[in-house]
Design a protein around this nucleic acid. Sequence first.
DNA 1: AGCTACATGTAAGGAGTTACATGATTAT
DNA 2: ATAATCATGTAACTCCTTACATGTAGCT
Lengths: 185, 185
Amino acid sequence: MSLKHAVLIVLQFEDGTGYEIAKWFDQGMGYFWHASHQQVYLELGKMAQAGLVTFTAVEQIGKPAKKIYHLTDQGLAELKGWMLKPAKQFALKDELLMKVYSGHLIPPQDLLDQILKHQTDYRELLNKFKQIEEQWFQDVENLPLPHQYSYLTLRNGIGYAKAWLEWCDEVITFLKGQIGKQPSI
Amino acid sequence: MSLKHAVLIVLQFEDGTGYEIAKWFDQGMGYFWHASHQQVYLELGKMAQAGLVTFTAVEQIGKPAKKIYHLTDQGLAELKGWMLKPAKQFALKDELLMKVYSGHLIPPQDLLDQILKHQTDYRELLNKFKQIEEQWFQDVENLPLPHQYSYLTLRNGIGYAKAWLEWCDEVITFLKGQIGKQPSI
DNA sequence: AGCTACATGTAAGGAGTTACATGATTAT
DNA sequence: ATAATCATGTAACTCCTTACATGTAGCT
């Protein structure tokens, strides 16, 4: 159950509403942990009951009232305790790999179309990551420590996207060969 | 709901029992799709009801009776239909990245221990993949087509493991620097 | 008139994990 | 003796997705 810990991590950086926390999981942090706003609101409710977080209700003019959540000592202790426990092993769930695995079932052109689409997505992701790197992490060693750690996860994203791009190239080359061999489908 | 399609893929390769199908998800195919035996048995039950698979009950001497499942035409049609639909976007869920992201919360040595452990795991994975490559895919172009496709997924695994290994090196270098800076924790 | 951002949630259902339950055979 | 392999499943629970539900402000 790591959504809890993901939320604790966000709140350890700064207090925020459920809405704001959900945005973290849609943007930057979403690269390695995603959650919908529904999940976040539910989880925050449970966490408040468990005493890991508390909130301050804030009335607003012209906007819905909001709850600003913040970490309790107990929440921080829970987070630190979790940090020290060994992380779960990698576990991919990737539909594209499944489709390639049984790629012989459909015409190579159809699979190629899908791979090309995914390659475009990975290329865009890589460009986005690289742009963030250039814009914010030129002088990494002089940034605050938490930023230096978050930079490491960005580096992971860059390596990950590159590896996928290269693999897509391999698959594309193979599929083009297949299409050349059987042009009459 | 892709467990269904993963099971269809396995059965499209060869008929098998729930036990045997579950092994695929623990071994080779487990690299990109994992499922427990409990999940598999449940799913097979649903799939049989839906007419995607049928089974032959086989009594055995000295072993429990078993059900050998096989694809129906409807099952194959479902699989091919799914193959043609666009695959879901990549979505990681990685605890290790979460821990690095908030690495400043614990002493660098503790994080380093975890990274080293994971690097060892990825190194073993890479070695396993490379060994499979050498043993079975020396002469890829002359293998049956399905094997050529499965080789592509192995290539993905190799690229993936390499990318993680390199990233682990980056993190290790950084953490050793951190440990050097604050030797008094 | 329609879209995006802000801001909160409930409900139903599907997917996945962990624990429980059984029992023979073969290898160490 | 103990563990692994073969072989099946149920039950409880947690986790995640999709759909529903509401309402203002500002931009195009």
